[in-house]
Amino acid sequence: MTRARPDHPYFDVPFAALAHRGFSRDGLENSMTAFQSAVDLGFSYVETDGHGTADGVAVALHDSSLDRTTDAAGEVSELPWSHVKEARIGGVEPVPLLEDVLGTWPELRVNIDVKAESGIVPIAEAIERTGAHDRVCVASFSAARRQATVGRLSRPVATSAGTSEAARFFVGGLLGLGTLRALEDVHGLQIPWRVGVVPVLTERHVRLAHDAGRVVHVWTVNNRAEMESLLDAGVDGIVSDRADLLREVLEARGLW
């Protein structure tokens, strides 16, 4: 199956292998060490989530609070950067500035999920200051958050559908209806391939997305058999915590 290649530099590779929150087997997700580990493994794409502190600083962190992954506590949006920067992921690694993730590896492509309204302005400003437009994909469960972020940028970035857009695409695909309108504002879909134990992504969906010139990236896939099945279905990218395993699978297929 021919894979889609939207007209943006972010997509100028045959297949997008995304290291989910970097690569760490030690619980240090979304740390600079995890991102460096992904780069050392040969990854040119990483995925991260973005939040804004109370004083407007963009950080690379999945959760809205510091509680789960760090030795500190509190909602990031209610704390100043001076407090957040003292937190340690796994008791070891500092919470990184998004600007540092974008600036440390000038060739690295970064998928950024805008997780909350507080992140809109700080994330846009971090992209602007680093000039990372050609190697950033802005995503969000909320289409409104994505649009607000992208609307603050001076140059286009890659974009991915929000939950409501993806839902319209999926329903349209299942019912045999037109699907392009659901994706007209984005370059593609970044979606789970199943809900619970029920697979929802079909080869028909992939084909319809490709017919519309959109890519399909799937998260979060950590099993070899599932990776193989999705590659057989023609997806354009896989997001994985097991970056090492994903590389093995792609190397075997000549897609690395």
Rank of each mutant, 00 (worst) to 15 (best):
residue 181 R to A: 12
residue 165 E to P: 00
residue 196 G to H: 07
residue 109 R to K: 14
residue 211 D to A: 14
residue 163 T to V: 12
residue 109 R to Y: 02
residue 188 G to P: 05
residue 47 E to K: 10
residue 178 G to R: 15
residue 175 L to S: 04
residue 119 G to K: 09
residue 91 G to M: 03
residue 116 A to T: 13
residue 2 T to I: 09
residue 249 V to Y: 03
residue 17 A to N: 04
residue 34 A to P: 00
residue 92 V to H: 09
residue 192 P to W: 07
residue 39 V to N: 03
residue 68 R to K: 14
residue 205 H to C: 13
residue 185 D to L: 12
residue 86 E to F: 01
residue 55 D to S: 14
residue 162 G to I: 07
residue 108 L to P: 00
residue 69 T to Y: 02
residue 221 V to N: 00
residue 182 A to G: 04
residue 109 R to C: 10
residue 228 E to Q: 12
residue 20 H to S: 04
residue 45 Y to C: 01
residue 19 A to R: 00
residue 215 V to K: 11
residue 254 G to S: 15
residue 107 E to M: 02
residue 107 E to K: 13
residue 155 R to F: 07
residue 11 F to E: 00
residue 125 E to M: 13
residue 176 G to V: 14
residue 99 E to V: 10
residue 135 R to G: 01
residue 148 A to S: 13
residue 152 R to L: 15
residue 164 S to C: 00
residue 142 S to I: 12
residue 153 L to V: 06
residue 99 E to L: 13
residue 125 E to Q: 15
residue 32 M to K: 00
residue 100 D to A: 13
residue 212 A to N: 12
residue 249 V to P: 01
residue 38 A to N: 09
residue 158 A to Y: 06
residue 245 L to T: 03
residue 41 L to H: 07
residue 22 G to N: 14
residue 46 V to M: 00
residue 73 A to L: 05
residue 122 P to K: 08
residue 208 L to G: 03
residue 71 D to C: 09
residue 233 A to V: 02
residue 188 G to F: 13
residue 36 Q to E: 15
residue 139 A to K: 04
residue 95 V to K: 05
residue 62 H to T: 04
residue 60 A to F: 01
residue 112 I to Q: 01
residue 122 P to T: 05
residue 235 V to I: 15
residue 153 L to W: 10
residue 182 A to R: 09
residue 174 L to D: 14
residue 239 V to E: 00
residue 150 V to D: 02
residue 170 F to E: 04
residue 84 V to D: 07
residue 162 G to H: 03
residue 160 S to E: 07
residue 208 L to V: 07
residue 134 D to I: 15
residue 146 R to K: 12
residue 80 P to I: 13
residue 39 V to S: 04
residue 216 V to L: 03
residue 112 I to R: 02
residue 196 G to D: 13
residue 118 S to N: 11
residue 20 H to Y: 02
residue 24 S to H: 00
residue 75 E to D: 14
residue 73 A to V: 09
residue 43 F to C: 02
residue 102 L to R: 02
residue 191 I to Q: 09
residue 58 A to C: 08
residue 254 G to I: 11
residue 129 R to A: 14
residue 116 A to N: 13
residue 93 E to G: 02
residue 28 L to F: 05
residue 253 R to H: 03
residue 145 R to Q: 11
residue 98 L to Q: 03
residue 245 L to P: 02
residue 76 V to D: 06
residue 172 G to D: 01
residue 126 A to Y: 09
residue 153 L to G: 05
residue 250 L to E: 08
residue 216 V to Q: 11
residue 131 G to N: 13
residue 210 H to G: 07
residue 116 A to V: 12
residue 12 D to R: 15
residue 186 V to C: 08
residue 13 V to G: 09
residue 69 T to F: 10
residue 138 V to Y: 01
residue 229 S to C: 02
residue 71 D to G: 09
residue 42 G to S: 06
residue 29 E to R: 05
residue 118 S to I: 08
residue 138 V to C: 01
residue 78 E to A: 15
residue 37 S to H: 09
residue 72 A to M: 05
residue 85 K to N: 10
residue 155 R to Y: 11
residue 225 A to V: 09
residue 43 F to Y: 14
residue 80 P to L: 15
residue 234 G to Q: 10
residue 46 V to G: 00
residue 172 G to Y: 11
residue 29 E to I: 06
residue 18 L to S: 08
residue 50 G to T: 14
residue 115 K to F: 10
residue 123 I to N: 06
residue 58 A to I: 09
residue 134 D to G: 11
residue 13 V to Y: 08
residue 98 L to K: 02
residue 52 G to I: 15
